[in-house]
Amino acid sequence: MKKFEYGMAKNLAGAFEFLKESEAKIKAGGIDLLDLMKEGLESPTRLVNIRTVPELSFIKKDEKGNLHIGATTTLAEIAAHSEIQTRYRALAQAAKAVATPQIRNVATVGGNLCQRPRCWYFRSADFNCLRNGGDHCLADEGENKYHAIFGNQDGCVVVHPSGTAVALMALDAKLVIARKKESREIHIADFWVTPEDDVTRENILKHDEILTEIILPATEKSTTSYYFKQKEKQSFDWPIADVAVVLEMNGKKCTASKIVLGSAAPVPWRIEKAEQVLKDKQISVTLARQAAAAAMVDANPLSQNAYKVPVFSAVIYRTICWAAGIDPFAA
């Protein structure tokens, strides 16, 4: 790592003060940023540590029942939080499924959303891929086993790496973004940037903006959710396919749903065609399988990742069943 100055902010004002330097970079848990710096892909002249800012680390409920999560809350804290486990199960499951215990103790939810893709060409200083300023995507015609099956026709075929993003999209989260004394609230779906819009970035944050909190809307008792991550090995691994499902139930009928895929596209990928299949129907294994088939209609696999289509189909139908509390393997 190249030398850098180190700002240890005591509060948000301090963080913004230290961020005035144009080559400064925010550091939360540092798990992604230090990796990029060790590889020589990032060389900020200053890091601004926001994990020392107490006002960014909290989980609290407001009077309307919305749950607010501070951006530097760790994944371990989210996974262990009893109200998140019961009211927003998919998020607790997603946080718990990320990486290893050691990483979850340090990695923050804000950093997890803002981490950069894990494509091997992008992550290596030996390649100059499109996302790193090169002239074409090396994975598109190269080694693309773990790459996108949706949204992969605009130059770059990475998949979005964040597991918590998948759950937060399905749970309709809002994000609060602050810049000096101003702050704005956006829906998480408006946070992501596709390769078509700008291939060099994955989200809309500007250099001096800080993601300060995540807001989860109050849920009804009749809302249920589930997140599942399919890996190649049993112990910790990156997903080859992950899915979050949120169902609004009226008795046995599903009145509305959100189905979001991770490791599928350059941004977390919502599948409205599958949601339509579930609308106003009673969830069954057969219906869940129909929804999964609908989800894959527009899939466009690359040369090495067609295997992802049946994997996603299986994972989607099972996750719908688990969200609805039915056994996906019942005959």
Binding site: K3, F4, E5, Y6, G7, M8, A9, K10, N11, A13, G14, A15, E17, F18, T52
Partner: peptide
């Protein structure tokens, strides 16, 4: 402390 500030500490590169 390169520049003292009530809002945090800034360490130099060295």
């Amino acid at each position: 402390e390169k520049t003292p500030s009530p809002n945090g500490k800034l360490l130099g590169k060295d």
